[in-house]
Design a protein around this nucleic acid. Structure first.
Length: 238
DNA sequence: TTGTGATCATCT
DNA sequence: AGATGATCACAA
């Protein structure tokens, strides 16, 4: 068998140092090179494999929480996010954070929110993500561990409270992707017919389109800039 | 069926 | 071009 989709999962890293050490082995390599090391094939395009890059790299690094609501590196309390970037190190896409429990979010505080828990400690893995570049030729960049700065926490908390407030007051249907400076709410579902229990303005539950929180590219661009110490236009991928 | 991994595809 | 809304695969 030489056409498996994913590699055998690596053992979980035992420390942050070990995790970062593994990341250094990936940096600068193309997805084709990494796939070849494990006798795998890279998808020709991502239309039917949208999460492939993230899942592939998670297994190479030894993430433990495959598709469970837990940190990717559970023992280390670290969430991993691949971040598609241009050759200049600019994010190509928004970053999905988590789904939203529409019935409960109005009763939560920021400090106990899934957004905060997920973003408190993140391993960012930049990967060339321009659509014009064939998936197999996309290079993995230099990964790094990140904890939000005080200001970033305040920005995220501000947006989260506004967005959670709209949902909590039953006005989900008025909420669009336009709201929120750095954090936004967008559909997160198999398709537009999917439904999840929500609450309307009168407090009655109804079947709503499932939503999730996403980080805007303007936020992740700042994360990259501050880590790599580059201004706009700098190269951060490898 | 739901959450995680995201990117696609269309509209402005 | 950039952003919003829609969509696809997999695992538990």
């Amino acid at each position: 068998m030489v056409t498996l989709t994913f590699p055998t999962p690596a053992p979980a890293p035992q420390s942050e140092a070990e995790l970062l050490s593994r990341c250094r082995l990936l940096a600068g390599k193309t997805l084709a090179e990494l796939a070849a090391e494990h006798d795998l094939r890279v998808p020709v395009d991502l239309r039917r494999a949208k999460g492939w890059v993230g899942s592939f790299l998670e297994r190479l690094l030894g993430a433990t929480a495959s598709s469970r609501a837990a940190p990717d590196f559970e023992a280390l309390g670290i969430e991993m996010k691949t971040l598609p970037v241009t050759e200049q190190g600019q994010p190509v896409e928004s970053t999905f954070v988590c789904t939203i429990d529409l019935l409960e979010i109005g009763d939560l505080e920021w400090d106990e929110s899934r957004v905060w828990r997920k973003l408190a400690r993140v391993l960012w893995v930049p990967v060339l993500g321009r659509r014009a570049v064939p998936v197999s030729e996309r290079r993995v960049g230099t990964a790094f561990l990140w904890t939000p700065s005080q200001q970033q926490r305040e920005w995220l908390k501000f947006d989260w409270e506004e967005l959670a407030g709209v949902i909590g007051s039953g006005e989900l249907e008025k909420l669009t992707g336009h709201l929120g400076k750095y954090l936004q709410v967008r559909p997160k579902a198999a398709n537009s017919r999917a439904r999840r229990r929500g609450t309307d303005a009168e407090g009655f539950s109804y079947d709503a389109l499932p939503r999730g929180f996403y980080l805007r590219p303007s936020f992740t661009a700042q994360v990259l800039d501050e880590h790599f110490g580059l201004g706009p236009g700098g190269a951060a991928d490898h």
